[in-house]
Design a protein around this nucleic acid. Structure first.
Lengths: 353, 353
DNA sequence: TTAAGATAAGAAACCGATTTCATAAAACGA
DNA sequence: TCGTTTTATGAAATCGGTTTCTTATCTTAA
């Protein structure tokens, strides 16, 4: 009980190290940054003292002088959604490899929060911003957001997963068309003709593109487009998809296959199907997007589109870092998805309709 | 096409503002920090110019001078696990209310990463660290970690969800005993006697406490403890729980109820049960921990222990901030869980065994 | 009307690193 | 051996804010 020591002990600085090593602060800094021109002997002495005190240079001071924070800000819609969690962790790992730290914010679907977070990230002087989902994916609020991004970020590079025309944002997209190609070729190959597409919101770019492609592919295969088989839910959650699916089945519309806009929606759809005493996949096949772990945890396990999160995250971060460090990068890059087949899909039931 | 303007435009500073407003930088700073002694007229003029340029003070410069970063570092085991994602988002929201930013790192189960991240957070001079899971929960690696935390963090307050004796860490725990009480009272009340407990690792404090309490409660209700009903899997994932459950059922051991150590484990157990042609809950009741959204997405939906994430996150952050700002806080706080009953649980099947 | 206290605002120091500049010492070449 | 280049080092400026210290101005009370 000799007083509350730990309360105000000031952090050790480069000057403390310098004094103890009997050199100047500049020399210590040279050792820290690994630059040349320090004699072996002093270097050893300095390193030893640094180690002794477990000294770590103050990132703020460092960032202030070289105007590089070595931080990448990430704005995600909601990490509680495993899709974002996967992308985020992939980004974190990629960033770590390049010597960067990531700062995560969740906008939780509020455009106002996005703005505030953009401001906050700018205050932190992050070297780049990666935005996953949110306004950049929204065909409507997009327009106002452009202005904000332009005025706020100035020189800070921004990488988005959606679209943001009129800004100098870099885009890394999942090839939405391609995902639909994979699913439709697969389903049609299994004999499906009555294919429903459920969930999401058409204001969201990727969803819009998927629906467009869906129509194109039907046409290519000479299958009539049935309006009643495509249903927005406005959200990407299970509850919405479930009630929309209930509605469809209650109307006597029973597709042989359902494409869920994401895994959550798939969960709701599965429940609806089961509650209507249909079997999966014997009566109805169901496939989904995202391939998050719940596809594996459900019964039956879900056939799903995988985005290859590791590659996606890596590309996002590498792009951000490259731009931040002044290297040339293409404005638009695409990541190619794959299809993972599990238990929830099979041949179309005979008869169809 | 008039040259690449945006590339190197230096960010605007307080001095630029001061010059344009024809005041000193000190006055601008006074306006920014909201301190008194600025005439209404100058204040208005300054604010207007700040707004005009969308100026945001450089957080590093600010943090450097007042040695407050206003950042709370969070080390989580893995946000892809929805449990951590929930806690994290709760923390983020709580922090936002108090004017703090959170910086998230995932240790991904590697003790070496935890150390590195602790160092990184220290470099960033975060005002406090919150650690969710990982070494602080581990009864074994705990010991070495204590030393590291002490030497590295010095004055930086740390709040953990586990235990870390020998440090001045603050603890905010979920009352593990209480969770087991809730589950066991509920199950025993439904007539269950053969209650299995599956998943996890006994080195993890919370798991250890749960098993201890489980035994105590059996005794209190004069039910024999059956060693074969309690099985570690070493992990908290579905695959491990599934194979352990398979093993148990294949040995002809069929409990009337199973407590899964978390929702993921529950998913694996459900699959095993279904594959053994048992019904849930008619033949076997299953309950779990965490109450993440998958409890709702599964069929049947899972009865689960809810931790009240919002309150949990709030308490974690409030504690961290309070300590950082020099206020008094109890060293140990507890959050009380509740039980959410869904479809996966019901009365014990007649006969038992 | 004047002394005392409150208010407004600038100058300058400071936070903790990096980096430029200057200089001294060592190595090198002829 | 002397001039030149290279290497090692410290002093000082800088990054962009906050804050302390002064000083000037304005109130207010006696």
């Amino acid at each position: 009980m000799d007083g509350d020591r730990s309360a105000e002990e000031k952090a050790i600085t480069i000057y403390d190290i310098a004094r103890e090593a009997e050199v100047s602060a500049a020399t210590v800094s040279r050792v820290l940054t690994g630059s040349a021109n320090v004699s072996q002997e002093k270097k050893r002495r300095i390193l030893q003292i640094i180690d002794k005190y477990n000294f770590r240079p103050n990132a703020m001071a460092r960032g202030l002088s070289d105007t590089r924070s070595k931080i990448i800000g990430i704005i995600a819609a909601d990490v509680r959604n495993p899709y974002y969690a996967q992308v985020f962790v992939a980004c974190e790992l990629a960033a770590r490899k390049l010597g960067y730290t990531v700062l995560l914010c969740n906008s939780l679907g509020e455009a106002r929060q996005e703005k505030k977070q953009l401001e906050m990230l700018h205050e932190q002087r992050v070297d780049a911003v990666i935005q996953l989902g949110g306004s950049v994916d929204d065909l409507v609020s997009n327009v106002e957001y452009v202005e904000l991004v332009n005025s706020l970020l100035g020189a800070t590079p921004m990488v988005v997963t959606g679209k943001l025309d009129g800004t100098q944002c870099y885009q890394v997209q999942i090839d939405a068309m391609k995902t639909m190609d994979l699913l439709m070729e697969y389903l049609i190959g299994l004999g499906h003709r009555d294919i429903a597409l459920i969930g999401g919101r058409l204001d969201v770019l990727s969803t819009f593109e998927k629906v467009q492609r869906y129509k194109q592919l039907l046409q290519r295969h000479q299958i009539d487009f049935r309006r009643e088989l495509v249903r927005e839910t406005g959200f990407y959650d299970a509850a919405g998809a479930r009630s929309v699916m209930n509605e469809m089945l209650d109307q006597g519309i029973v597709p042989t296959a359902v494409i869920a806009i994401n895994d959550f929606s798939a969960a709701g759809i599965v429940r609806s199907i089961v509650e209507h005493s249909c079997r999966i996949p014997e009566d109805i096949t169901i496939v989904s997007y995202d391939n998050t772990y719940i596809t594996d945890h459900m019964i039956p396990s879900l056939t799903s589109i995988d985005y290859n999160y590791e590659r996606f995250g890596t590309k996002l971060v590498e792009t951000a870092v490259a731009v931040a460090e002044g290297r040339e990068v293409p404005k638009l890059q695409r990541v190619t998805p794959t299809l993972v087949i599990r238990e929830s899909s099979g041949p179309a039931r005979p008869g169809g309709r």
